[in-house]
């Protein structure tokens, strides 16, 4: 543990898990959803729903979706900033069963390049001290913490897909720290998150996408 985890982080109050963590969930969801966001329904669960206004969790979630960091003074006026940038949002409190008390689901309806129609659903939790964990992207149960630079790939279930991804990363001198992959057999889709020791360049990501069994690659920078 660094001493700057004890005297720190520098953050907008009042709560590391309900404010700073909420910002971080918004930031991760933003990059996973990709592109400038148009419309989102935000569904806070349990303790997150309870402290929505009191801990500024609502503003923190929206601020994170705008790409603000936990120490950004504009978080106080995140709603006005969202309006300025044309991000439509609404909150719907929900009670999920057997999920972490600080859980939120983002339902995006955007017109990004990859998902013109229904958008994307992202679920995550604030797990303490500002640390977070994305636990689900659409139907894929995956984990993104933002502790390291990562990539998220969606691909067809064909032999050799991981060999392709890992060898291309290797050729670019990128080391894989962790990797988790899941399959949706009925849709013939697979998805994986790779945590890396350094960011993947836009060129490398584009190169990976060129293969026809890879639907897309999204780069998720370290928080």
């Amino acid at each position: 543990m660094s001493i700057f985890d004890i005297v720190g982080p520098e953050m907008i109050g009042p709560s590391s898990s309900h404010t700073a963590g909420a910002v971080n969930l918004g930031r991760l969801a933003r990059v996973i959803a990709g592109g400038e966001l148009k419309k989102v329904v935000i569904k806070p669960h349990g303790s997150f729903g309870k402290t929505l206004q009191g801990h500024g969790t609502d503003k923190a979630l929206v601020g994170g979706l705008l790409g603000f960091e936990p120490n950004d003074s504009r978080l106080r006026s995140a709603f006005a900033e969202a309006k300025k940038r044309g991000l439509e949002f609404e909150f719907q409190k929900v009670e999920g069963r057997s999920v972490h008390p600080n859980t939120v689901i983002f339902n995006f309806y955007n017109d990004g390049e990859d998902r013109e129609k229904d958008g994307i659903k992202i679920q995550g939790a604030s797990i303490g001290g500002g640390a977070v964990k994305i636990t689900r992207i659409d139907d894929f149960e995956l984990e993104v913490t933002g502790n390291n630079d990562s990539i998220w790939c969606v691909h067809k279930n064909v032999p050799g897909v991981f060999a392709h991804i890992t060898s291309m990363l290797g050729e670019n001198d990128i080391n894989i720290i962790t990797m988790k992959a899941v399959q949706l057999r009925e849709k013939d889709l697979g998805s994986c998150i790779l945590e890396l020791n350094q960011p993947v360049s836009q060129e490398t990501a584009a190169e990976l996408e060129k293969t026809d069994f890879i639907n897309f690659v999204r780069r998720i920078p370290k928080l």
């Binding site: 720190g8 982080p9 907008i12 009042p14």
Partner: peptide, 17 residues
């Protein structure tokens, strides 16, 4: 300031900053 969504340094937490 912490209670008002102002900027603080957690030490060791925001509540005790």
């Amino acid at each position: 300031v912490n209670a008002s969504m102002g900027k603080i340094i957690a030490a060791p937490t925001a509540g005790a900053s």
